[in-house]
């Protein structure tokens, strides 16, 4: 069951503060990196919900993000639908497709589940790559951003768009917490712990898995819509299994099943990628070595390691710090 600890709140505040600082002070390149982090963070949140809290390790979340991006591009450019409606449509469509994938794959487990989702992802990639309506290998361009000029916000400005992505991520994080704390989320945790027992209690297990996969797909779809609006151009590479693989690396690097960890992972991954790629073209080797170190250390990612090592101590200190004023009052009364 997902629980917020003092440490988790502290890390969230730290991440949000750093993102806000970056959003208000960075120049163009810094804002682009920030936006990249925020969109990746949204995708890995979606993946953490199914993999970390439902045991459904998906290799099609990159494809789901791509579907969201393409659906938005087609609806807003080819079909000429207003961007807000196109966004909602793209998110709903991706959620529906993800629900169907979840419903079919929910009957498999472990490596078979991974392979089934990989197959769905690659089917989508191949179709988009070949179909003329999606622009084939050339992709689609001329994608417009959401128009918020009626409230005085110009999303064509990088700073405004980064802040918009940050607000969206905040809302999605809140929604993710609500999902995981809902009856559905609790059942998902039960299924991950003991699927047979949940079935014996009367739960329709495949339905729970499909519903959560659908919700996760909606989040991945929204990440895709924002990615399309960010670059204003999309190509089939967005649906490739390597995007899903990269998202999985980020989730494991950050801390599977913690929600906060994948946010840390997304920030660490993108910053590492940009810093290292400036030094060497073999930056993947460093990330790979780091991933191996994290996995071999048996720590649950960077955040999981921090939580296991200092979590209890930090929680105690932060809790004590918030209780001190009351304690003083009691002493004063005495």
């Amino acid at each position: 069951m997902f629980r917020h600890t003092a440490l988790r709140y502290a890390v969230l505040v730290l991440l949000a503060s750093a993102a806000l600082f970056q959003a208000f002070t960075a120049e163009y390149f810094g804002l682009e990196i920030l936006t990249e982090i925020l969109i990746l963070a949204m995708l890995v949140l979606a993946l953490d919900i199914v993999a970390g809290f439902g045991g459904m390790v998906s290799l099609c979340h990159g494809a789901l993000m791509g579907m969201g991006a393409y659906a938005y591009a087609i609806l807003s450019t080819t079909a000429g639908i207003a961007p807000p409606v196109a966004m909602a449509g793209a998110v709903a469509l991706t959620g529906a497709i993800a629900w169907a994938i979840g419903a079919i794959c929910s009957r498999s487990h472990g490596i078979y589940f991974i392979m089934a989702t990989l197959a769905f992802g690659q089917m989508a990639y191949s179709y988009v790559f070949e179909a003329p309506i999606f622009g084939g290998d050339d992709g689609l361009g001329g994608i417009s951003r959401l128009d918020l000029s009626f409230v005085g916000i110009d999303l064509n400005d990088s700073r405004s768009f980064a802040l918009f992505c940050l607000a969206s991520l905040g809302a999605i994080y809140g929604a993710s917490v609500l999902i995981l704390r809902s009856g559905l989320g609790r059942s998902l945790t039960g299924v991950m712990h003991n699927e047979q027992r949940m079935r014996a209690l009367g739960l329709t297990v495949w339905r729970v898995k499909a519903d959560v996969f659908g919700l996760s797909g909606m989040i991945a779809g929204l990440a895709g819509v924002l990615a399309a609006q960010h670059i204003m151009y999309i190509s089939p590479g967005l649906l490739s299994w390597t995007v899903s693989g990269e998202a999985l690396v980020v989730v494991i690097l950050g801390g599977l099943g913690t929600l906060v960890g994948p946010l840390v992972g997304a920030a660490a991954f993108v910053v590492l990628k940009h810093e290292l790629s400036a030094v060497t073209t073999y930056w993947h080797l460093v990330v790979g070595a780091l991933l191996i170190a994290v996995v071999m250390s048996r720590a649950n990612g960077i955040f999981g390691w921090i939580e296991a090592r200092w979590g209890a101590r930090i929680d105690r200190r932060l809790t004590d710090a918030t209780r001190k004023p009351e304690a003083k009052e009691v002493l004063g009364d005495a």
Partner: peptide, 13 residues
């Protein structure tokens, strides 16, 4: 599960 709250979204069962 018995009370039908196991699949409720947005409310803690």
């Amino acid at each position: 599960v018995h009370t039908g709250n196991a699949t409720q979204l947005w409310s803690d069962s």
